[in-house]
Design a protein around this nucleic acid. Structure first.
Lengths: 224, 224
DNA sequence: TTAAAAATGATAGTATTACTACCATCTCAA
DNA sequence: TTGAGATGGTAGTAATACTATCATTTTTAA
């Protein structure tokens, strides 16, 4: 199996499309590595410029600021995730099995190969876990929301919410349950790594623990 | 009913205890107002100093940096919340009623009066909703965790987790469910305000909506 | 093929942030 | 009344988050 996946990430997120040039792809790839290594607060365009041996000015030609760059990376992730969901669900028709597949995706690492985008998927996963809420927990959210920068996230959520509604049309909170599952999958992984007393991780590995917690939460909530 | 509540907030969080002086209390009070108004990213000690007509140097005599000040404020909140939980649960012995009382607390505004601490409770609530995850989603979490700065949060969680275990001793994820409920209560309020399509808010007001969602989630999960 | 256009590099500069240092003053308590 | 502690005021530094300008290189289109 070998194919190219490509998404059109919202063009409000960049000044110049980084997918079109070597340098652009270098910027995104190394940004992922650096944000993972330093954390978003310590990450700067200056440090990134030094890393790829260019200048700040050049990076500013691609992205207005680091917040937009983070949004770009997350949008790429959410689009890829939605693609994976579609891909995994094809040929499945039992709603329960579909939902199990979704939870499995939410709690596993991204598959490594996706064509020319050799982003470090482990790092990308960790960024989503540790930094993604910083993309929306900002004072000017209503401004940036106008540019539809949360569309891929919303699309994924609405797809999952539809599966829930399919499973149990009477359940009252399909969307809120979906966002709770997604955000909780990040939180619980973060807590399991860093503040394990806030979780019930045990001898199981973390991914399995989060997976079983989320399944329990989901299926008890939507039980018919 | 009139009484004084006082908590000893972890002394690793300040250089000089702000509760002991007028200026110290001014700093905390106005920090809450400013963080609410500007958001944590735009909030600076310089702006706070101008607001209360003092200098940056003075504020640095109380707090090492703005992250510690945020932690201080959140610790105060979590300690107060634990006090409220204890207070509300006294004389209750039905585990279900206790849990309902907890959810009600998590989804309502703080009571206005608590002695000399005339912090703006509405603002404090919003700060907890919008900024609290920034306190732990940092690269040096394991460092700051050594100073027990998350103790009040952990204590509250463990208290609630105990109630869940009391209700259903066989439920496997009392702690993870607790953190999910708390964090989800913030998230859903934030989404209801800012990205309502990610939720199922309807004609109900937001607090009622979040309240009923969380109760549904909780009691279905721990059903015996 | 050549000239124009676009992309990048190099350097510099500004305002703000996140501090630290130092000294003067003021106050309150022994 | 003296002296310790709290605060004010000023200054300074390194880093951040940009913007501007100009030179060079690369691409493209006529």
């Amino acid at each position: 199996m070998d194919f190219q996946v490509s998404f059109n990430v919202n063009n409000k997120l960049f000044v110049k499309d980084p997918e079109n040039t070597d340098l652009g792809r270098q910027i995104v790839k190394n940004a992922i590595d650096l944000i993972y290594t330093l954390g978003f607060e310590q990450f700067t365009f200056k440090k990134l410029a030094i890393e790829i041996q260019t200048t700040e000015a050049t990076i500013y030609r691609y992205f207005e600021n680091k917040h937009k760059l983070l949004l770009y990376i997350l949008n790429w992730y959410w689009s890829y995730m939605e693609f994976l969901v579609m891909f995994k669900l094809q040929n499945l028709d039992n709603p329960e099995i579909k939902l199990i597949a979704v939870i499995d995706l939410l709690t596993s690492d991204l598959p490594v190969n996706s064509g020319k985008f050799d982003y470090n998927k482990k790092f990308l996963n960790q960024i989503v876990i540790s930094e993604s809420s910083k993309a929306y927990l900002v004072k000017d959210i209503s401004e940036i929301n106008k540019d539809e920068v949360f569309k891929p996230y919303k699309d994924l959520c609405s797809k999952i919410a539809d599966l829930i509604a399919e499973y149990n049309p009477n359940y009252k909170f399909p969307k809120s349950l979906t966002t709770t599952l997604i955000e909780s999958s990040h939180q619980q992984q973060f807590f399991a790594d860093n503040l394990p007393k806030l979780t019930d991780v045990n001898e199981l590995n973390q991914k399995d623990f989060v997976n079983s917690f989320l399944k329990d939460l989901l299926f008890k909530s939507i039980l018919i």
